[in-house]
Amino acid sequence: MAPKRPKLAVWKFSSCDGCQLSLLDCEDELLAVADSVEIAYFLEASRAEIAGPYDISLVEGSITTPHEAERIRRVRAQSRLLITIGACATTGGIQALKNLRPLEELVGSVYAHPDYIKSLATSTPVLDHVRVDFELHGCPINKHQLLEVLNATLNGRKPNVPAYSQCVECKLAGTICVMVTEGKPCLGPVTQAGCGNVCPACDRGCFACFGPVEAPNTTALSVRLKTLGMDERSLQHYYRLFTNNAPAFREASKDHE
């Protein structure tokens, strides 16, 4: 008899669905994944719902409503391992820009009937609410990294997910540095690798989709970016991209307010 397959659930909170789609995007490997785990709850892929508890929960999205703050606790309670996937779940996502302004002001300017809206004042990462076993960064996550995390989890080993900078990724890949050869701004030196070197390989600076590197020195990078022509306002905006609410970038952008 085949060994019992671990039950996998995929949960969505405030997010665009892009990270969950990375799982479907696994195409060739998807069948192997489906062989190794029982996909018990994944609304994006199937309406079938198998009740918890679950061995592995993948959580996408940030916590932006009182209802979500409540629901993430229930997900945690039903999950042996909880892995957050993507910039929303790990940093609060692009929607964490709302944290910079009073909620009433924002809701009032967007909705005709603000009184119907029940939202929290902030968009926060899952880790701010419940215990998390592993955080996989990226906006969106890289499907190879997702497979590696699942693979490592199923095989009881540590996932090979690097903590080093995007610059290392450039050099491993043989990419030519856009900052040194063209003077283009790049957040790579303070950004964790993992995307697969997407932007520098296309001759663009890195946008920090994978969040801050293990020990970012944004102060030193800002000094350099200024000599490349960025002013205070553009620096402030530069750190407020997809992972704006990661503490290192939040602080860095405040430095340029």
């Binding site: 062989d35 590696e148 199923l154 090979n160 030196p189 020195n217």
Partner: peptide, 28 residues
């Protein structure tokens, strides 16, 4: 205070020889 710890200097250095190894398994 000036250094980014980005590691570019060691990656481009023609003598730096440090490496790390990782083990990767197939899903099954």
């Amino acid at each position: 205070n000036r250094c980014l710890s980005c590691a570019n200097c060691t990656m481009v250095c023609p003598t730096c020889f440090c490496s790390t190894v990782e083990d990767v398994t197939s899903l099954d």
